[in-house]
Design a protein around this nucleic acid. Structure first.
Lengths: 334, 334
DNA sequence: TTGAAAGCGCTAACAC
DNA sequence: GTGTTAGCGCTTTCAA
């Protein structure tokens, strides 16, 4: 029977290097008061034994675990999945470890956040999470830094990083007008977030400035099947251009338009620039929120806030940009 | 300035209930030797103060953290993202917390696993991870239970849960033959996993049994653009039916077929049954690996292995099933 | 049935 | 520049 030898402890490194445990700790954490000679000896010993500090013990002692809680919703949405992947990578680069929970329902979120607190996370990142109310409350109670990503409905003292949805709406309006559209519709999602309202508001406001108004509007869950069943009604309004709250809605709209009238359809714009948008079968013009930058900034903010016992609040807005493709090229209408 | 009051410690509950810390611990963990009366008092006090045990401290003491490491690749693949989501949910139900890392490259994986070990995870789940070699080695060295999901190239003493790819291949062959195909091709991915090889092998073997052989074969990265550029060559072989290693390849193949010859194309089958497959624009027949079951079993296995200091190895195979859609209906060819 | 005390592995204040 | 010691918050023998 295999004697299950425990992981190497700092004590054993100390023994091998003929030195005390504290010196090991200091040498390995780069304390300047350690002589070069001993540092080398300690490092050699550590390497030889394959010593890796026990981060749980360190966390207990330091009151700082290096763990960051991440609350996320609906990973079936490729946009969320991609954001999560970027977050994980960028956290890793800062030597932070993500404890991930899914908070799709109110008690799900409540539950997730409770677990996170129990694990003494250093900070919490809530990624496009509904029920941010609960999360905000829990983080406030537990004095944990919280960063909302792509949501800013929290109170004034909550940090967030999000895209400028309002501006995105107006960029889209300009693009459609430039490409010759003269009548417009909006395809909304079923969420009631401020982010989502801003998209529409930015869009209609810019239209108004140019002397146009919405001739049609519909709403649907962010779900291909439901969106397709709603689409015909929206198309029936005859608008020359339609802005969709989300790529999922846009794909459904394109599919519906294709089957209804194969030889002409409105200009269509989506939101999120998911990888599908680039597929030739869709060639969907879409707003890119610059997730790369958004996640970088989020992680940097989280990193900065660790330890900063509620030092400051940062509220950062990232500029989105439009990726124009075939779905809004003037000749796609006939 | 807000006196940052620490989280509630078991000591404070003890004080409020006029009892010792040990009794609090026992009462809350359901120790049978505690009198009903004190238990009630302790529970009341705990609830009143909102006490949540510090899981980091408990982890240090118990040598068991309740944290499970999850190593995953390529969350842009919706199949992986969905699997991760299910894993997280099912781990949560078992009161386990997932520490997630992305292991896309060899040193990425190496790095991830090192972090996991430092955090004293109770077990590791590797989800469709390449570089499982490194992971296997690290878990063996650290004596951590490891479960490979959808990979079984590890040594004999490594547990895994995976789909029966070989059988899936033969199910697909039968389906295509039933639907009238008499010549066949295979569209392979760029991975060299046993799983992937099995799909093809199961397919060709069943074809052989029925007296057929492959008339065409191509390979591509799992990437829409690359797959589309390879597709024409494959279509040129004139096979009446094509089995793809993956839905991504299948979508690209469908797109390519549509543009090349709008009025007739081979029967096409994918693998993973991603949500796109159900969209009417694709209506792709695809193999469903039963992720729901696969993840359940994986989590149960992980749960069972925690503490079981390398008690046993479990190697479980989940039956896949075919979801037939329009892409293989006989009339789609002409 | 409950309390006192030790200790998980680490780091940091305080000696020297 | 390095060692000694205490303590993070919890559970769990061992005593009572």
């Amino acid at each position: 029977m295999d004697k299950l030898k425990k992981q190497v402890r700092s004590f054993e490194v100390a023994e091998l290097a003929n030195i005390s445990r504290s010196t090991v700790s200091r040498a390995l954490s780069g304390d300047p008061r350690i002589s070069e000679e001993t540092r080398a000896r300690v490092e050699a010993a550590a390497a030889k034994l394959g010593y890796q500090p026990n981060l749980i013990a360190r966390g207990l002692k330091n009151q700082s675990t290096g763990i960051v809680g991440v609350v996320v919703t609906d990973l079936d949405n490729p946009y969320h999945a991609h954001a999560l992947q970027l977050l994980i990578e960028k956290l890793g680069a800062k030597r932070l470890a993500p404890l991930v929970f899914v908070g799709d329902t109110a008690e799900g979120a409540e539950n997730a956040i409770a677990r996170l607190m129990s694990y003494q996370v250093d900070a919490v990142i809530a990624l496009a999470a509904p029920f941010s109310k609960q999360i905000v409350a829990a983080c406030r109670a537990g004095k944990k830094p919280l960063i909302l990503m792509n949501r800013y409905d929290g109170p004034d003292d909550v940090s967030f990083v999000c895209g400028d949805s309002h501006r995105a709406g107006s960029i889209v309006a300009d693009h459609l007008i430039e490409n010759g559209a003269t009548s417009f519709a909006y395809f909304a999602g079923d969420d009631t977030t401020s982010i989502s309202a801003d998209r529409e508001h930015g869009f209609t406001q810019r239209l108004a400035e140019k002397g146009f108004e919405l001739t049609g509007r519909a709403a649907s869950r962010y779900d291909h099947a439901q969106a397709m069943s709603v689409a015909p009604m929206l198309l029936a309004c005859g608008a020359e251009a339609i802005f969709c709250a989300n790529d999922t809605l846009a794909f459904a709209l394109l599919d519906a338009a294709r089957t209804m009238s194969p030889f002409g359809r409105p200009l269509i714009v989506g939101y999120d620039n998911s990888s599908l948008a680039a597929w030739p079968a869709y060639a969907l013009t879409s707003v890119d929120q610059n997730l790369e930058k958004m996640t970088s900034v989020t992680v940097e903010t989280a990193h900065a806030m660790v330890g900063d016992a509620h030092g400051g609040v940062s509220r950062i807005v990232i500029e989105p940009y439009l990726v124009a493709r075939g779905s809004t090229s003037p000749q796609s209408r006939t």
